[in-house]
């Protein structure tokens, strides 16, 4: 792929020392190009959250290099890392994580507040984004006056407000019912189609199927990478014995999915 890289991980290791050292990530290399849509799957404890934290500039790697928006996260001080997080990363959380006392508009504008952007400009940008996620008429509602799906739309608008290099979504539909989930994922597709780089962590196959490719994590390693767009699959194979299920329910979602030739592949 000749496309520019939004985020890259180079042999990243993250070790937590709680008594015995635990390798949450054990030498992971991954490149996310601009405009791509990547899903990360894996059982709990596989290192998904750690990967998210690293890509989201919330944490620094123990070894290896994480590059976000062209800057090495591990070499940055806290202040620089925070700035990078504010401008280059947009978060979408399972629990929405909106500020409870700020209305939808203010929540969307919040990241720009910390970038010192002028109030009027902020509000204009936020209003624009709220329109785009279909909540133009809910700008002055507080989060608790919004439904789960609406809150996640606000969160998505907030994630996009600084025009980040990448949007990180952590189980974005985990708290939503099926219909609302489809709406949100459609919205993801829409923004992706418009050029936003998406990185979605999920344990649900049908959510992951919206992506161009799925990175399977297991025990801190990339087990394999499924490329849904082009149909081929590159393995970073750790445990060939563990295959993947899937296929059937993934096909059911095909109407919304990526274009042609989607093919599910088994490792066997």
């Amino acid at each position: 792929m000749a496309r520019e890289t939004a985020v890259s991980l180079e042999n990243v290791r993250k070790t937590y020392r709680i008594g015995e050292p635990v390798h949450a990530l054990d030498g992971v290399s991954l490149a996310v190009s601009r405009g791509s849509y990547t899903a990360i799957m894996g059982p709990s404890g596989s290192g998904k959250s750690t990967l998210m934290n690293l890509v989201g500039c919330l944490d620094t790697p123990t070894a290896g290099e994480v590059v976000v928006g062209g800057r090495p996260v591990g070499e940055l001080g806290d202040r620089e890392r925070t700035r990078l997080r504010g401008t280059e990363v947009g978060f979408v959380f399972q629990t929405f994580n909106l500020m409870p006392r700020l209305n939808a508009l203010e929540n969307v504008a919040l990241p720009q507040l910390f970038q010192g952007i002028d109030r009027a400009e902020r509000r204009e940008r936020a209003r624009d984004l709220l329109e785009r996620v279909g909540l133009g008429d809910r700008a002055d509602h507080l989060p608790n006056e919004l439904s789960g799906g609406q809150r996640q739309r606000v969160a998505l608008a907030r994630a996009l407000v600084n025009d980040p290099a990448i949007v990180l979504a952590d189980e974005p539909s985990g708290n939503l019912d099926t219909d609302t989930e489809a709406d949100i994922l459609d919205l993801f597709d829409e923004f992706h189609a418009a050029g936003t780089t998406m990185l979605v962590v999920t344990h649900e196959r049908h959510v992951a199927d919206r992506a161009d490719r799925i990175v399977h994590l297991l025990d801190g390693n990339i087990e394999r990478i499924e490329d849904l767009e082009r149909g081929d699959e590159s393995e970073s194979a750790v445990d060939p014995g563990r295959g993947t299920e899937t296929t059937s329910d993934a096909d059911a979602d095909a109407e919304t999915g990526s274009p042609t030739g989607r093919r599910e592949a088994d490792s066997e």
């Binding site: 925070t82 504010g86 401008t87 919040l110 990241p111």
Partner: peptide
Amino acid sequence: IMKAVGAQ
């Protein structure tokens, strides 16, 4: 949340 969205 504030820190995640860039609060120093």
